[in-house]
């Protein structure tokens, strides 16, 4: 059952990702990306990481995608501006390199699996709910990275205002 649901989600995820890069309209691409994000949230939920799944929906499918749409509207690209020739070349290069990377990954993971179960680590303890694991790790062991996040957010606030705010508007 779990495997069946995983396969459904995985197929939906790949399908959505293909839509993201093939749809011509930027807005439709963004909506397809929302779909992919939601499916990924489903995948997280499937392995028991419920909190991460919720975050995935709140932050990525919600806030980040709103930002994406704003930027699309900000730029307002009506037609794709890349010339046809250029596109063919990049498309070719992308397909070749992407396939190569896929095979590399598949090869590495396969060899790791064949080496035995020792190489694969079970990340989420089944006995605990995911938020309990995250919070007890985040506020003790990873206290410093947690505090550092606020510094990062502060920098992001200053940077965004600095770049996006027009001057002399006081």
């Amino acid at each position: 059952m779990q495997l069946a649901i995983f396969i459904i989600f995985a197929i939906l995820c790949i399908f959505g990702s293909i839509l993201v890069i093939t749809l011509r309209s930027a807005v439709s691409s963004a909506i397809a990306l929302v779909f992919v994000m939601c499916v990924i949230a489903g995948l997280f939920a499937l392995v028991g990481a419920l909190f991460v799944a919720a975050l995935q929906v709140i932050v990525y499918a919600g806030a980040v995608m709103v930002l994406f749409l704003f930027i699309i509207m900000l730029l307002n690209l009506k037609e794709e501006l890349i010339s046809e020739d250029d596109k063919k070349f990049t498309r070719f290069l992308g397909i070749v390199l992407g396939t190569a990377f896929l095979f590399e990954l598949a090869f590495f993971v396969r060899t790791a699996l064949m080496r035995g179960s020792e190489a694969l680590y079970e990340p989420v303890p089944k006995t605990l709910s995911s938020i309990a694991v995250i919070s007890s790790e985040l506020f003790t062991k990873f206290l410093f990275p947690f505090e550092l996040t606020s510094v990062l957010l502060l920098i992001a606030i200053v940077g965004a205002i600095l770049l996006a705010k027009k001057k002399n508007e006081k």
Binding site: P145, L148, V151, I155, L162, L163
Partner: peptide, 20 residues
């Protein structure tokens, strides 16, 4: 994870500085 966050704290201001 600390290294990753350190890298981001280092890089984020640099992006803004490049477009200063």
């Amino acid at each position: 994870i600390t290294a990753f966050l350190g890298l981001e704290v280092m890089s984020l201001p640099l992006y803004v500085l490049a477009g200063f």
